[in-house]
Design a protein around this nucleic acid. Structure first.
Length: 382
DNA sequence: AAGCAACCCAACCGCCGTTTC
DNA sequence: TGAAACGGCGGTTGGGTTGCT
């Protein structure tokens, strides 16, 4: 069964020969491709227009980059995929010279496996339920961990065939200093956001108590969403409401943006906020980082999300200039998520309860992405 | 050297939204 | 206004390649 455009004529299928490539290339170079259905006939090809279009876009186009994906490209894919999901064409728009097919193949053959190896759900980028209780810290010595019992947490990623898959990045690892700090806290093993790239400075640990939970968080630099400058952190604030909805807010490096999923993101320059005493807690029922429970937060986020959807925000088709910051303390206008309305309690480093200080974060230039962050552009460039 | 399995990736398939007639 | 054609997209497939036994 073929495409309707192919059913009316006998067309060749399968791999393209060099002669066919040459015909198509020379024709499009000379005449363009205003109407794909006319291209094969005019170019003297026994192919359907759709096949010609695909061949041109994925292979013959002169501006294609080809070759192995760089680490930067891989990070970009991770970043955008987390926001947009499997919208390969949209993701590819952020990777000059790459096609949606190429991105899709790279994802399926490489990145997806890396995430799974880390116990992360490739769809949500959250920890897989089966893995979150198993994930442990790899201290690099082999002690204190048993990969055979915990394959999902295998912080060492091994390609069975060496580097055949062409993955550009090294295994996910959690450095031993991180574990040392964690051990010192003597708390239940937290789910540690696995670092995509191990870094010398593993970050800080904040273990404070709250009414219902005791947990610690190891802030590991280099989570997949980190950017080149190495100054970012990612957190996901996840909470539950009575209806069992699990909205989340993710704080990414230096930007704020929305997504079509129930995720809201903002930037968090590494060190700044945490040095000022904002802590994050791991909710054992959540897949990622979580704040302490706020029974109303989920509902408020849900409401804000509905409002956002009602106004059409978060759709990648949105045209026009970039919107005001999504999470901005409620002053961003009708389209913005009123962060003050969904603030959740967190605890300061001194153990004192404090409100989630949106204004403080704003003052740090965290949410607004004032410096023109590429992540913010993702939503609006699509 | 041969057989097998795993992997990669180019190409196809089918669906959907838009445009044209 | 509705059907057909078209363009675009994400999911899937299968042939070729590579590595292992």
């Amino acid at each position: 069964m073929g495409h309707h455009c192919c059913s009316k004529q006998k067309v060749k299928r399968g791999l393209w020969s060099p002669e066919e490539d040459e015909k198509l290339l020379s024709y499009i170079t000379a005449h363009g491709h205003s109407c794909w259905s006319a291209v094969p006939k005019n170019a003297g090809l026994q192919r359907c227009g759709k096949s010609c279009r695909l061949r041109w876009i994925n292979y013959l186009r002169p501006d294609l980059k080809r070759g192995t994906f760089s680490e930067q490209e891989e990070r970009t894919i991770l970043d955008v995929h987390r926001i947009l999901g499997n919208r390969w064409a949209q993701i590819a728009k952020h990777l000059p010279g790459r096609t949606d097919n190429e991105v899709k193949n790279f994802w399926n053959s490489c990145i997806k496996k890396k995430l799974i190896a880390q116990g992360l759900d490739p769809k949500t980028h959250n920890l897989l339920p089966a893995s979150k209780n198993l994930l442990h810290v790899h201290d690099g010595t082999g002690s204190g961990s048993n990969p055979s019992n915990n394959p999902a947490a295998g912080t060492q990623f091994h390609s069975p065939n060496g580097n055949r898959n062409g993955c550009a990045t090294p295994p996910f690892t959690i450095s031993s200093p991180t574990k040392a700090v964690y051990d010192a806290a003597m708390v239940a093993p937290p789910v540690v956001a696995p670092g995509l790239y191990d870094v010398p400075n593993p970050g800080v640990l904040m273990g404070q108590h709250d009414r219902d939970h005791q947990a610690a968080v190891v802030m590991q630099q280099g989570y997949p969403y980190i950017h080149n400058n190495g100054s970012g952190l990612l957190m996901s604030f996840r909470d539950h409401n009575a209806a069992g909805i699990h909205p989340s807010m993710d704080f990414m490096n230096g930007s704020s943006h929305s997504s079509s999923s129930m995720e809201y993101a903002a930037g968090m320059p590494n060190g700044d906020v945490f040095n000022r005493g904002v802590a994050v807690f791991m909710d054992e029922t959540a897949a990622m980082w979580a704040t302490v429970p706020d029974p109303g937060m989920g509902a408020r986020v849900e409401m804000a999300y509905q409002q956002q959807q009602h106004h059409g925000l978060g759709q990648d088709e949105v045209a026009g200039p970039p919107p005001p910051p999504l999470i901005n303390g409620g002053s961003s206008g009708s389209k913005g998520l009123d962060m003050m309305g969904v603030s959740s309690e967190v605890y300061g480093s001194a153990g004192t309860t404090t409100a989630f200080d949106i204004e403080l974060m704003e003052s740090c230039g965290i949410f607004c992405g004032a410096a023109g962050n590429d992540m913010e552009q993702l939503q609006w460039d699509c």
